[in-house]
Design a protein around this nucleic acid. Structure first.
Length: 259
DNA sequence: ATGCCTCAGCTCCTGAGA
């Protein structure tokens, strides 16, 4: 089975790219479950028929202009949870469901903007709430797949210029300590596990020729319960859509698990 | 360069993204 995450930076703009990618993801295999971030659509504006017509089950949860998440699946989904029970959050950032015997979570972590800003304080609070939620979720029988736009680099191998970007947003030790705490709960960074050499990125700034110069960061991640480790077959960042016309600034990331 | 792109909206500027 293939599971994937993609920050689309407006589903209105990227709908056709998402539908095409669902049918033609790399190396022949089709995506079974895709989570989206930054749909930027209120629920009454969500183009759900485009997905149901194509045979998908889905759930979505959004707001206009900012945030918004969706979970799109070729298989029936159940036990949908929107946002985290551990945080009263006005922003639409998390969507979760049981599918294929897994607890799949799609998340759009707060950006944080600047380590000295109120938004960074909110990011820390949000990360603590996620940790608290996962602490109870991992007691349930379904293995966990936590994927999305984390807005955190795991370490310097995830950063094109770790010296110049030292201690800047997505690279601070506070953010990375939260990432480590998730790993310490018994979650595996699927991509790093397959690619220990690092230096593969999932986001490139629209400005400064970030993409053509490969000045990027790996901030989109897929974490797996350790019980899924022996089922892990592959995990890749598909950089192809980043080169399209009107691309999202994020690339989709996918993982293949033994059925 | 507290900008460089891109997107959405109380849309011809501004805030936010990362």
């Amino acid at each position: 089975m293939r599971l994937a995450t993609w920050n689309v930076n407006s589903l209105n703009v990227r709908l056709d790219q998402v539908l095409a990618w669902l049918e033609h993801s790399p190396e022949g295999s089709k995506v079974d479950v895709l989570v989206l971030q930054e749909t930027k659509l209120s629920d009454d504006m969500f183009p759900f028929q485009a997905f149901t017509r194509a045979g998908f089950d889905l759930s979505f949860f959004g707001q206009k202009t900012y945030n918004g998440v969706a979970l799109i699946s070729r298989h029936p989904i159940s036990s949908v949870v929107k946002n985290m029970p551990t945080l009263d959050d006005p922003m639409a950032r998390v969507i979760s469901a049981k599918v294929l015997g897994l607890r799949v979570i799609g998340a759009y972590f707060p950006n944080g903007q600047d380590p000295l800003s109120d938004k960074f304080v909110y990011k820390m609070k949000w990360l603590s709430a996620l940790q608290a939620w996962l602490t109870t979720l991992r007691l349930e029988p379904e293995p966990i797949v936590l994927m999305g736009d984390f807005n955190i680099t795991w370490d310097d191998l995830d950063v094109w210029d770790p010296v110049g970007l030292k201690d800047s947003i997505h690279c601070t030790h506070q953010e990375r300590e939260h990432f480590q705490a998730l790993v310490d709960l018994g979650l595996l960074d699927a991509h790093r596990s397959i690619h220990p050499e690092g230096k593969k990125f999932s986001w490139w700034d629209y400005r400064e020729g970030g993409w053509p110069r490969n000045k990027g960061m790996r901030i989109d991640h897929i974490l797996l319960s350790l019980s899924l480790k022996e089922r892990l077959l592959a995990c890749e960042i598909d950089t192809e859509p980043r080169g399209h016309e009107r691309p999202s600034d994020h690339a989709p990331v996918w993982v293949d698990l033994k059925d």
